[in-house]
Write a protein that binds this DNA or RNA. Structure first.
Lengths: 346, 346
DNA sequence: TTGAAAGCGTTACCAG
DNA sequence: CTGGTAACGCTTTCAA
């Protein structure tokens, strides 16, 4: 009520309007059945005093906060920035706010962070959670209104991109260009989306026995891509599919430094279509993952739950192949021999 | 207490441990002066029941939420992503969470969003607020624990980058390279940091009357930069300082499309040093604004306030010149004449 | 239609 | 050192 705090409470308004707090509450919440005259008096008093109901108190009694949590592994990653933005904008349209949490890729701390954050909110969106499947399954059960992005958990609404299909598209794109020796520069084996990508590689390899696809272990960063350059060059491949755009950019930079022309001598394609993929040199061919849309859809599922609807099955978005300048036909045999000779291999 | 809700409350623990709720509260908050035996019993009971104090109830009675708000004009902007990340990580280290709000560059809605968000938090960080100075000054007074990034408000702790000095550094860099006809591709006149940049241009112009600096109105996006290309070319300038890296990248793309070699025919420098500035072609010379650090410092000021310290004056970070490949000596006179002729000017 | 009173789950003050 | 008992600010029965 604000005895000594400068902020006006419901009792101040009640007193000013000459009614009870109950009535003020009813008016503020637009509940019908209040005398028009009183409504007017309360409105006037509230405005005059600049009264705004304390959201904390409302949350406590109502049992809902109008806030959802969004947990990401790394706020510096364009992919998660996009998801966060998608969720935030969509939720804001419906009057919900977002509490962010960055787990800093700390798998061990992830579950605790999620639990903690969840308690202050009505629901939570987990973006590409890193925790092991069993832990995730258990955690998610205790989190209830929850949606998971890029990770499938039985019985839990999930929205994800089809990384497997995306990789196949990329591989087929390269094969169609004439490449017969490809390499997949993989991400961390602990990443669920990398597992999906590897499955795509396997599926493609089976469907196209005429194309050789090797896998090189790398990581998910620009540095990992740059570091993988020599192994990629030595592999004798003419086309490379990177785990993501960051890795592809690292590869591009390292390749340029070593004088390997892209796409003349080697084609490089990425994954994600982060905002800057179109501006690399050469512009990166990639599979676009609509991260903002994933975020919006995640909110949509949550909103549906709040509205009492039953959770439906997973929604899966198919990445879209974006052909730009980093991919092209493989060099003629003589060109390849020349490079092989240059790097000291037969 | 959880009569029918499945969640355990403080009373459940009290009952299980055979003590009062007060004691449970004391134990949970690690308050000294509780019998060791009771502490043990309470701990055991709490663990057994999986009790976690309801943060909402604590917030209500304690008057603090352990949460701060971060309001940004646009979550898609790398600059704000960096600030958000800086604040979030720093705050998390001290046990604080972050509620994000994206105003979508809606100046009119900004104040309301800030007010609303602030009510659920203990403080707020305003990142480059767009509202007019008088509105900002008034708003900020009602928000109290608040820190403003990149906007100076008398009496309010602020942390900002010295855009003025950064522009001067960039201009001097170009002048030192030999350029005598420069153009500044400006951002929105309503942007406070653009005003600072223009002041830098003016200061430089005064100090170096031998160098001509024209200003071209543009904007803050990649598209704005691309659109400004023809005006820039027609200006006859040999060096251009863009409002930010995004604009510089747009310029770079457009210049490349028109066959203007950078930096051979024209030098282009950006501002901010966003994560991808190092990977453009040619790599962008820019003035690095440590956005993450701005965010961390913002949190630091808030933490100090929470600790009862008095707010100190503004802290200003000086951008650091990052010379890369997009800037170089101006073309020889004959070269310039050649281009001028090509574009139909004398 | 309106108001009094009982919570929501926790902490803090004040006796004992 | 411990346990009642008031708040915190609001919403919601329940009577009147």
């Amino acid at each position: 009520m604000g005895r000594m705090t400068g902020i006006t409470g419901i009792d101040d308004v009640a007193r000013a309007a000459g009614v009870s707090a109950s009535t003020v509450s009813r008016v503020m919440n637009g509940r019908a059945g209040v005398d028009a005259a009183l409504v007017e008096r309360v409105r006037t008093a509230a405005t005059a005093l600049g009264y705004r109901p304390n959201p904390l108190a409302r949350s406590l009694v109502l049992g809902r906060t109008q806030t959802i949590a969004v947990v990401v592994p790394d706020l510096a990653n364009p992919t998660f920035q996009g998801m966060l933005r998608g969720v935030t904008l969509a939720a804001a349209r419906d009057g919900y706010r977002v509490l962010v949490a960055d787990t800093s890729e700390d798998v061990a701390a992830e579950e605790a962070i999620v639990r903690e954050t969840r308690r202050r909110c009505d629901a939570v969106v987990l973006c590409s959670p890193r925790m092991p499947t069993d832990v995730l399954t258990a955690a998610v059960a205790a989190l209830d209104p929850v949606v998971v992005i890029n990770r499938s958990v039985p019985g839990i609404p999930g929205v994800s991109a089809d990384y497997r299909a995306g990789i196949v598209d990329l591989l087929e794109h390269l094969a169609a260009l004439g490449h017969r020796r490809l390499v997949y520069v993989a991400g961390s084996p602990s990443s669920a989306s990398d597992a999906a990508r590897r499955a795509g590689v396997a599926a493609f390899a089976q469907a196209r026995p005429d194309v050789e696809v090797r896998t090189v272990e790398a990581g998910a960063t620009f540095g990992d891509g740059a570091a993988a350059a020599s192994v990629v060059i030595d592999s004798g491949a003419t086309g490379v599919v990177a785990f993501n755009d960051l890795v592809a950019m690292g590869l591009l930079a390292s390749l340029a430094a070593r004088g390997v022309a892209v796409p003349a001598e080697m084609s490089v394609v990425g994954f994600d279509d982060i905002p800057f993929a179109a501006f690399t040199t050469p512009a990166l061919t990639t599979a676009a993952v609509p991260v903002g849309e994933l975020g919006e859809l995640a909110w949509g599922r949550l909103a549906a739950r709040f509205a009492g609807e039953e959770p439906e099955g997973d929604v899966v978005l198919r990445p879209e192949l974006r052909v730009r300048e980093s991919s092209g036909p493989p060099p003629a045999a003589v060109g390849r021999t020349a490079r092989a000779a240059r790097t000291g291999r037969s």
